[in-house]
């Protein structure tokens, strides 16, 4: 009886070990897919609601802060200029970066109403995390494939990149920001100024819409 128990236990443990590698491979992918599904549904609920624009923006902001690795992406986008930036400039840059991210959505609340999305699949991308493919349909337009790179580096899932039609948003933004700094004589201030101008343009657009 005892021997029997031991073999059973052994088999159970063996099963656990045998199962764990495949679990380790699949778990992040399905976790990332579920994460995008849930965050997307939460975002869609706010976008489709009839809340006043400012209330909507607040809720979208809290969803983004929770779902996107704003600081990590912001650092990546600034690239080599992050290291040489002063503490005050870093704080100001991250503030502008986050505000631009949110305003880019809130200035387009009208267009974003009624969008539909579905998770197609999730593929592990090694150390980078998991790429989650989604199909997003804006009203009256052909469905577009948007891919979300979800990283687990911080211990919980966070979006670190958005890829549309083979174009990575963070890579495009990085080359753009570096061009602005380069054309501004290598000064970070020229980028911060450009970001402030863009932010106020987005605010104007949002005001005009509502």
């Amino acid at each position: 009886m005892r021997a029997h128990c031991r073999t059973l236990l052994g088999a159970f443990v063996a099963c656990l070990f045998a199962a764990s590698p495949s679990l380790a491979n699949d778990a992040p992918a399905s976790a990332a897919a579920a994460f995008i599904e849930a965050r997307g549904a939460a975002l869609k609920e706010v976008l489709d609601s009839d809340l006043p624009a400012s209330e909507k923006r607040e809720r979208v902001a809290s969803i983004l802060r929770d779902a996107v690795d704003v600081q990590g992406v912001g650092q990546f986008v600034l690239g080599r200029h992050w290291r040489t930036a002063s503490e005050a400039n870093r704080t100001e840059y991250l503030r502008l970066f986050e505000a631009t991210l949110i305003r880019n959505l809130s200035a387009r609340f009208g267009e974003l109403k009624g969008l539909r999305f579905s998770v197609v699949r999730a593929q592990p991308r090694g150390e980078d995390g998991v790429m989650v493919n989604t199909l997003v349909e804006f009203p009256g337009q052909a469905p577009a494939q948007l891919d979300w790179l979800v990283s687990f580096a911080s211990g919980r899932p966070l979006i670190v990149d958005l890829v549309a039609e083979g174009t990575s948003l963070r890579i495009t933004q990085r080359s753009e920001y570096s061009a602005v700094i380069q054309r501004g004589g290598g000064r970070l201030d020229s980028l911060l100024d450009a970001m402030r101008r863009q932010l106020s343009a987005l605010e104007q657009k949002e005001l005009a819409q509502n």
């Binding site: 083979g166 174009t167 990575s168 495009t172 080359s175 753009e176 920001y177 570096s178 061009a179 602005v180």
Partner: peptide, 16 residues
Amino acid sequence: QSLDFYAALRSIYLQR
């Protein structure tokens, strides 16, 4: 959305 439309297009072209 662009801060520098030329730089954005350059990057997008190369990535595509």
